[in-house]
């Protein structure tokens, strides 16, 4: 079963076709990488898949629901329930501890649960750093907190925007290992990346150019 399906999805700003007639699908449990140069439409596609924008035309089905024409408020609810977001710049709240940063996602989803948040940190190997503030963590550790936050509400789809873009090689390896483990546990993952080594570990890679899907490569 497909967790995500895009059918002829376009996003047009005036005369600029940021994304044009994109058609693709992601199966449940699949790991998909999206690659492309700057301005190729990666961010536009991420915004649409992540329920942060609506397409100008075409249909987007997330977990069987057509989200193409939902209101901003409805998209917020879908995003909260079904999407786990991981960012290049981590975007942790500086005045909250690692544990509280994970709990923020619970807070906006439903109810905070400290025990469950601690378990999420344990999944990414950070249970002993739970009480540390972001500035007391390394880049790799911050990204792992970001991953724990993305996982805490059991999302249907994990959406990662350049998750290793700000990391050194050692931390990049650690983060990729976390993704591999999540994939092994059956999580559906979409990773936008510039890094071919990160893309290679995904099941499939989609290449975008000038707003169009130019190539799809099966990695295994």
């Amino acid at each position: 079963m497909d967790i995500l399906k895009l059918a002829n999805v376009s996003k047009i700003y005036g005369s600029v076709k940021a994304l044009y007639e994109a058609t693709m699908s992601v199966a449940e449990g699949e790991w998909l990488a999206i690659m492309g140069p700057s301005g190729s439409g990666k961010t536009t596609m991420m915004n649409i898949i992540g329920c942060m924008d609506r397409p100008t035309s075409g249909n987007v089905l997330l977990d069987g629901m057509d989200i193409s024409n939902l209101s901003a408020s409805e998209l917020t609810h879908i995003r909260r329930d079904k999407i786990g977001l991981i960012f290049q710049q981590f975007h942790l709240i500086s005045y909250l501890t690692a544990l509280e940063n994970v709990m923020v996602a619970q807070y906006y989803h439903s109810m905070t649960d400290e025990h469950e948040a601690m378990q999420a940190l344990a999944r990414v190997g950070l249970e002993d750093r739970a009480k540390h503030l972001p500035r007391q963590l390394s880049g790799g550790e911050q990204q792992r907190v970001c991953i724990a936050r993305a996982l805490i509400n059991y999302p249907k789809l994990i959406l990662a925007d350049e998750p290793t873009g700000n990391l050194d090689e050692a931390n990049e390896g650690i983060v990729i290992d976390v993704f591999k483990r999540l994939h092994g546990e059956g999580s559906s993952i979409i990773v936008v990346t510039h890094d071919p080594e990160v893309a290679e570990v995904a099941d499939r890679t989609i290449f975008l150019e000038h707003g169009r899907i130019s190539k799809i490569v099966l990695n295994r």
């Binding site: 992540g50 942060m52 408020s73 917020t76 609810h77 995003r79 909260r80 329930d81 977001l85 960012f87 975007h91 709240i93 923020v104 996602a105 906006y108 989803h109 936050r149 509400n153």
Partner: peptide, 16 residues
């Protein structure tokens, strides 16, 4: 702005 954007991305609605 960035923190607000993050909170919204995490599911905060306008009321929150």
């Amino acid at each position: 702005r960035r923190e607000i954007g993050l909170k919204k991305a995490l599911g905060a609605d306008n009321g929150g």
